[in-house]
Design a protein around this nucleic acid. Structure first.
Lengths: 253, 253
DNA sequence: GTCGTCAAAATACTATACGAAATAGTATTT
DNA sequence: AAATACTATTTCGTATAGTATTTTGACGAC
């Protein structure tokens, strides 16, 4: 179906194809439509998305800076591989350096607008509980990403916000999750492991540990309790690390 | 196979023009050949560098991710403006979050290779003292950038290293310095101020405070004194901030 | 003189085709 | 079997044409 009219149907066409293409390719990487480590052929991609090479090239150049695409001179582009255990640990260590500080600052600077934003975000998390399990994963990860990002923004430090966003940590975690899921399809013995991965990290169903921890962070921030917010954030990230770490190890073995 | 004719005249031509172009444009921004906030015309740039639009577009897309170029849809690219005082402070605050930690980790992990690298870097700083004053600025900033980057690398945390490099802090500081210098040309009354800017921050001539502080950090790391390395780095960044801050304010008023 | 309107020029963006050069794979010769 | 030569594929860059959007600047109304 190399009919070029198709992409129009997929959504509201922004006037800049490069940006659209960027989002589309990002989505394709996120959903493993392009597998981790797979080669990315510009011509093929252009044909598939119904655009010319120019926007593809710009999108790939940006994705390379984002660390989602790797470029080898004269050999072309390919998606980056899944996080190694070391990269995974490094990432969480990095988050431990900046996010507790961001929470602390947020508690000092919080105002009515910030409180409203935090309220809205927590509300969206709770409504996500009503979704089916498969939709919950996506919804939870998106909430998690927005929540943490929101706090870095409330902290008011541009450098911190930017560096956090650039880690694309939730994107990488989602890729790990997807990889686990597809392993499941090949190997039924992994069944319990993959369920664990999801339940441990996002605690859907009865636990909802993530929501509880987020709630604690939010309360401390809104109460102006800077030290409390800091330690709450610290504990939350540490607990995420502890819960997710065995799964990451399993996948990389 | 026909013998390949190397174009010796043009230098070590990398076969990937995009990368070359990226470096060239970056250099042009750094040196204010393209002024902060100025528009970047793709056609003009392509003509000037003697390449076609394709590599220019890829380079600009990457520079946009780097935060050195801003893109407005359908209106084109332009260089980012100089750091505001807030951005300047945010940047240093961010560095205070990650670099002291990096120094601490480095002290724990340091080995013979790391020591040799630190030695070599400090040596290059001392030989830079023999250069003329105008060359010293460039040489010092480059040393400073390499020194701090080296420590993040020795710390072993990829996320920290990457996020530090992406701040391009030394590049931004150099742009501030250049802006001060060009103000000097227009306004002789600024003379003292600009000299201050340079001497305060890099302490060339007799002081060489930067080198002393770097030496202290290096010693602590090589001695395996993790707490000492941490506080030394903390003091160094704080002292940079204190010294440079009045200058940054002056430029942004 | 100020303001809005509208056509024309400039520029950004996309499409497409072509060619040079490098890589990778295959076949041939020594 | 190893080295070489050839072919195919792919990347990378160029050139050019066409469309869409912004900017400019002139003109006229108030």
């Amino acid at each position: 179906m190399p009919r070029k009219v198709q992409p129009v149907a997929t959504g509201p066409k922004r006037s800049v194809l490069s940006d659209e293409t960027y989002d589309m390719v990002k989505e394709m990487i996120l959903t493993h439509e392009i597998a981790p480590g797979a080669k990315v052929n510009i011509d093929a991609l252009a044909l598939k998305l119904g655009v010319s090479q120019t926007p593809i090239r710009e999108a790939l150049a940006r994705l390379e800076s984002d660390g989602l695409i790797a470029k080898e001179a004269l050999k072309g582009y390919s998606t980056t591989k899944l996080l190694t255990v070391k990269q995974f640990n490094d990432l969480f260590q990095f988050r431990l350096l900046i996010e507790p500080w961001a929470a602390e600052q947020s508690a000092k600077k919080i105002d009515a607008v910030g409180i409203a934003a935090l309220d809205a975000e927590m509300q969206s998390a709770k409504t996500a509980l009503k979704l089916s399990e498969s939709e919950q994963v996506q919804a939870f990860i998106e909430h998690d990403a927005r929540f943490h990002s929101l706090i870095t923004r409330i902290s008011g430090n541009e450098s911190v916000t930017e560096s956090f966003e650039r880690t694309h940590c939730h994107l990488h975690l989602f890729r790990l999750f997807l990889a686990a899921q597809s392993q499941l399809l090949d190997d039924k013995s992994k069944d319990k492991f993959v369920q664990d991965l999801f339940y441990r990290y996002y605690q859907t169903g009865s636990g909802q540990l993530t929501i509880k921890e987020h709630e604690a962070i939010k309360s401390a921030i809104c109460a102006g309790d800077d030290k409390g917010a800091k330690t709450a954030m610290q504990k939350h990230i540490q607990s995420s690390l502890d819960r997710f770490s065995p799964a990451a190890k399993e996948l990389n073995k």
